[in-house]
């Protein structure tokens, strides 16, 4: 009777200890941790398992082992933050395997990789043609990162000479029918604005599953009921269209008027409007 209580208490206690240890050690994506950390994780796991299953009878000794394996790697990591020498010792350095389109064979040999393996890694980064690769580096954790030649990179708006309006991150303001006030605060908007927007869209707050606002203030809504057709936000396009209409109206008036002075007035205003339209185009349409 007593033994199973002891095992239960041990396991629950260790569960909490391990949870705290993970918080202390921090969250790292499994594919990105160094092998050193991986080993220490495995050892912590094994010791905890043995301890909770009562294979290691002496609790304090077991906890001592755990403490060392949690704290020492942590200390080593802090040291490697401060000193580059320690960092290179612990994590290793990246090796350049392709430079200016040419393969560095001796680096490959040091990394213990064959040409076939190199090609396979390049393919996993979508570089099927070696001719497309400008630079490739093998990181300390063995992953290869590829820089393609500049004419093989995807086209950016800068390369095309087109101006695009700067956009920053969207804020989620409705989740599961509840308003997220932090999101509203980040955009300097309040609940009244949100209610107005929902009214114009004709949706009640409790029907909204996700509501997102972009950096220019447009609200996008996803409702629980997928049958409802929502009007897509077109305020910007409408504004642009309205300005274009006014522009062509002014041009028309300038043609109709007989009085020279008025004609000039209409023409000048049409010209001003045209300039503004050109400036606003990247912000309203793109």
């Amino acid at each position: 009777m007593k033994e199973w209580i002891e095992v239960l208490l041990r396991t629950v206690g260790l569960f909490i200890v391990i949870f705290a240890a993970i918080k202390i050690l921090g969250n790292n994506a499994i594919s990105k941790i160094s092998s050193f950390r991986l080993i220490s994780y495995i050892i912590i796991a094994i010791v905890t398992a043995l301890l909770s299953a009562n294979v290691i009878k002496n609790i304090s000794l077991g906890l001592l082992v755990l403490a060392v394996w949690i704290l020492l790697p942590l200390a080593l990591e802090y040291l490697s933050l401060k000193s580059k020498y320690v960092h290179d010792l612990v994590y290793g350095k990246g090796k350049v395997v392709i430079k200016q389109g040419k393969v560095m064979e001796d680096q490959l040999k040091q990394a213990r990789m064959t040409g076939e393996e190199l090609l396979s890694e390049l393919r996993s980064k979508n570089a099927f043609f070696m001719a497309d690769v400008e630079f490739a580096i093998m990181e300390a954790n063995g992953e290869i990162n590829v820089l393609l030649k500049s004419d093989k990179l995807p086209i950016t708006s800068k390369a095309m000479g087109q101006k695009v309006a700067p956009k920053s991150e969207p804020q989620t303001i409705i989740l599961d029918g509840n308003v997220i006030h932090e999101g509203l605060k980040n955009l300097a908007l309040n609940e009244k604005w949100l209610q107005q927007q929902l009214e114009t869209a004709g949706i009640a707050l409790e029907n909204v599953f996700i509501g997102q606002v972009d950096s220019s203030g447009e609200l996008y809504i996803d409702t629980f009921d997928d049958m409802i057709q929502l009007p897509q936000p077109t305020v910007k396009e409408l504004l642009y269209a309205n300005l274009e209409k006014s522009h062509s109206d002014l041009l028309g008036y300038s043609l109709e008027t007989k009085d020279q002075q008025t004609k000039n007035m209409y023409e000048q205003n049409a010209k001003k409007l045209d300039e503004i339209l050109k400036k606003l185009e990247p912000y309203l349409l793109r």
Partner: peptide
């Protein structure tokens, strides 16, 4: 700027 221009017009 657009506001100023439209104001003038």
């Amino acid at each position: 700027e657009a506001l100023d221009t439209t104001n003038e017009i």
